[in-house]
Nucleic acid binder design. Structure first.
Lengths: 204, 204, 204, 204
DNA sequence: CATGAATGAGTATTCATTCAT
DNA sequence: AATGAATGAATACTCATTCAT
């Protein structure tokens, strides 16, 4: 079990180790990441590493947890910066997908995580992201479709977030794509918008 | 390179080994599967195993190839047995999802494969399945929506097949689901049907 | 123990296998030569191979034995062709060394054998060669230095043949030579001639 | 890469491992030497062994390096002890050869190394030995033959050192010698002395 | 005699984890 | 608390040789 660091110095050490996990993961890949590599990269003895993390797995979990916060924050900042909540849903969605795919493509760490998401405690990252979208979507719907059945919303978000993430990550990671990236984004956008717009757009 | 089995006995041995791969995989998991375990389970010397499979990877590939055929066939049989092509799209989709999820849940081997599909040459299985759905969908659309834009169809199927598979597999594998299985299936079904129905039923 | 082939067909098979040993050795090197490779190259089943050769080692032995004859014959032919026995000793020796080194350098099989001579039953090749030189030298000395102590000759030839062979083979095979090839040949020649010329050339 | 031992304990461990290499080599032979054997013989875990030696080859290299120093030192001591530099060349040479052959014959490790020197990084041992002879020879020549052509000396030493080593080692290792050891030594000595004495003592 | 499918002992190397200092 | 030296189980793959057919 991981010991919870109370001291300032300890917290710094934990942070250093988690950063090191990211570095090693990005540089050597999940398969070639060893606890000793991490300790080296963190400038910490392997013994100390095991003082704070009882397990190799815990290292990765901690990284994902840490990333989760950062990613959510980044997404939030980006959404504010681009005034996303003023955009029509379709544009908002497309922008978000593009931003996400670009992030993974350009960030070696994110890419390596994407390449191995299934072996990782990915929900650490997935859940808050899902939460974030939910939070972000909530006011949107309240504003635009007051009488939209919120009940349904959770399931829809679950399905859409997972579908979009898994499909686009798989697309980025797979060798030979069978459709173009624009087609993918357009179709995903259409799918999401189709699901989130009011069931029968009224006047009918 | 894998030696191609010409003799009857050889073909039996290959089959026995592939079966053994499945057994070991189901029992010990992908990470703890050993070539020697497989040889033991097949009642075959490790040397013989390597006479027919040049690689550990080739063992898994062969299993997936073999499963791919079986799964496609089972799906086909199931679709015939249930008279699927006479059903309305919504029921057809729901039935297919239920059947697929049930298969994975009840079959330890399928479950283990699902848990690790990202590390496996999974397209071996995904592609024929996708193909199968496409073939199955084609006449459906021809019958019901003659002037449906086929152009779009490929991208839509790509997105839908991947989304449905990834999301439902993830659902089965994850620890604490946040929505019920019925909700999941209903939402996935709605998503698929929504995408595949003619764009604007309106003026029709 | 190797079975001695009496039949014509058997003798052909043995010959084919020995040739195959040479091929495989030249192509794959001693370390990567396997009995199955040899059997394949000979177009013979591995079982048949073991009918005539009880051992992997025996294969190599047989090759060396066979080569021994060929090399001795080649040397003889060469010596006749170049009218060697009419030449002064110094030129004869130099020519022989050059010819030998050239043979090894240009013949991949000879080179591979040279690279591994110590692990091989090299005497199979060394002895007849030594014999050959002795036979070749005998008349030379009888003609030129009637009262030369033949007693000594055997030891001298032993030392000279071994020294020349080992040193030049090592030279050919080593990575970074510290003297030039011409220096090597000149020095070896001088060494040999110095040893074989009458102890005190008389007038003193 | 081999970790450089800084601690006292580490240096001891490295020494113990190198000794173990020698033991295993002497007992089981080069072909049957195993990293695990060495670790066992050293009373060290296989993991520790690999902490200091990155490779099986490095083990042998380290042994040779270590032996190289010892052999050179022993030779030097021996030469001092026997007042070799006061001896006439002929006796000096004969003594050296006898001492060398005796060392190999009586030391199982040296014998095994001699039997396999071609596969070993033997220049580690050959070079310093050659150097040693050169250094030892230099003053000798300066004293006795001031105007001796040093130009030639390098090639001569190359040829003589290699010839003597290879031939005598081969003699020790071969099964059925065709000349007596005394004959061998006498002839080698004659060869060396003949080469190293001034070209034509005649008119001097 | 011929075949070639089958055998299985044997080996270098890695890496998560511990624990004496 | 920190260190890092030490551990040793675990694993894919080769190849000489056999023997049932």
């Amino acid at each position: 079990m991981r010991r919870i660091p109370r001291q300032q110095r300890s917290r710094e050490m934990v942070a250093r180790i988690i950063d090191a996990v990211g570095e090693v993961l990005a540089e050597r890949g999940l398969d070639n990441m060893t606890t000793n590599h991490v300790a080296d990269a963190a400038g910490v003895s392997i013994g100390s590493l095991y003082q704070y993390f009882s397990d190799k797995d815990e290292l990765v979990e901690a990284l994902l947890e840490s990333l989760s916060k950062r990613v959510t924050r980044d997404f939030h900042q980006q959404s504010v910066k681009l005034n996303m909540n003023t955009l029509p849903l379709r544009q908002l969605v497309e922008l978000a997908i593009r931003y996400g795919m670009q992030s993974i493509r350009t960030n070696p760490l994110m890419y390596e995580l994407a390449r191995n998401w299934q072996r990782l405690p990915f929900d650490r990252l997935l859940e808050p992201l899902s939460q974030f979208f939910q939070v972000m979507a909530q006011p949107y719907f309240l504003k635009n479709y007051q009488n939209y059945p919120v009940e349904n919303l959770q399931a829809k978000l679950y399905v859409l977030v997972h579908s979009t993430l898994f499909t686009s990550v798989h697309y980025l990671v797979q060798d030979v794509p069978t459709i173009s990236e624009d087609e993918l984004i357009a179709t995903l956008t259409e799918m999401i918008v189709g699901m989130l717009e009011p069931p029968a757009t009224g006047a009918g």
